[in-house]
């Protein structure tokens, strides 16, 4: 006999208590896979239904961003002194970075508003709202996969990317990105329920975050002592490890950036370190996000 109930007198709404069931979260996602699959389809198709280009739009956004950055950072701020055009290596460095960060950021922005956007589900149907950020994040990852294929193809053509067996670790990187986005997304979604200002604020913060992450610049470009301390600080940026892991898996290899006489060595670090860092971030963010979300979930229906 199925039994369902709620006891307001014994229910404790502390974050720590709500955090413990996080171990059951993957099972919960798996149990609702059929539902999530439907939501995923709805999210993916619903966004483009009625538009002429349809699914093509998912790629147009990162490609367009790439084109702008390529022009601005390759030509305007680039090396006009040397008179050389930006190299394919730079183009692919930029493209892979933009792809990874937009899929990460897209997932975050979408999950930030997911509870409020699905107000009628939260309010009218007894719906497991902790699942709401999953479909938009999966859509972000799907878009990334399409972009990564394009990136890989071009990289192989120009001989810039040299993928090897580590390409098989792409699912691992995607899983870690999924968990990181989910954790932070749950936290943001919770905040957005209580104050709708969150989604606007987050839009700004996320732009700042992208500029502080080596998406279109090399960490090694920063000269002097300040460069060393900044590079040390970057290790603490979750997006830094994530993006470098993405690049390494796609086959980016250390190269020398020639600028006239001097050569700057661009290194991507070790994949193992980045994956470890991402895993730590994923666990920490998921615990934080899930704990906060679940401890406040009982109040959402009255607020959206």
């Amino acid at each position: 006999m199925i039994e369902r109930g709620y006891d307001a007198d014994t229910a404790r709404h502390s974050v720590v208590r709500a955090l413990l069931p996080v171990v059951r979260y993957p099972a919960e996602i798996w149990r609702h896979r059929y539902l999530l699959q439907n939501f995923f389809r709805r999210e993916l198709l619903g966004r483009f239904r009625g538009s002429a280009l349809g699914i093509v739009w998912v790629l147009i956004h990162p490609v367009f961003l790439f084109a702008i950055y390529y022009f601005v950072f390759g030509y305007v701020f680039g090396r006009p002194a040397t008179g050389t055009a930006p190299s394919p290596a730079f183009a692919l460095y930029l493209f892979s970075g933009v792809l990874a960060f937009t899929s990460f950021g897209e997932g975050l922005i979408r999950s930030c508003t997911c509870v409020v956007d699905n107000g009628n589900l939260v309010k009218k149907v007894a719906f497991p709202s902790e699942l709401l950020p999953v479909p938009p994040i999966l859509v972000g990852l799907t878009v990334y996969l399409v972009g990564a294929a394009v990136c890989l193809g071009t990289g192989l053509f120009y001989g810039v990317l040299q993928p090897d067996w580590t390409l098989l670790l792409l699912p691992v990187v995607l899983l870690l990105q999924f968990l990181m986005t989910l954790g932070l997304g749950l936290f943001l979604a919770n905040c957005n329920v209580f104050a709708r200002d969150t989604s606007h604020l987050w839009g700004i913060l996320q732009t700042a975050w992208m500029f502080l992450t080596p998406v279109f610049w090399y960490p090694h470009q920063i000269p002097g002592e300040i460069g060393d301390s900044l590079r040390a600080a970057f290790q603490w940026n979750p997006a830094y490890s994530l993006i470098q892991a993405h690049r390494l898996v796609l086959g980016a290899r250390d190269f020398d950036l020639r600028e006239g006489e001097t050569a700057i060595a661009v290194t991507f670090g070790s994949l193992g370190d980045h994956l470890l860092a991402c895993a730590c971030w994923a666990l920490a963010l998921l615990a934080l996000g899930y704990g906060v979300f679940m401890s406040r979930r009982h109040r959402y229906a009255d607020l959206v």
Binding site: Y6, D7, A8, D9, T10, A11, V122, K123, V125, A301
Partner: peptide, 8 residues
């Protein structure tokens, strides 16, 4: 869909 303040 919504939760009680007190009781069960």
């Amino acid at each position: 869909t919504t939760f009680p303040t007190r009781g069960r």
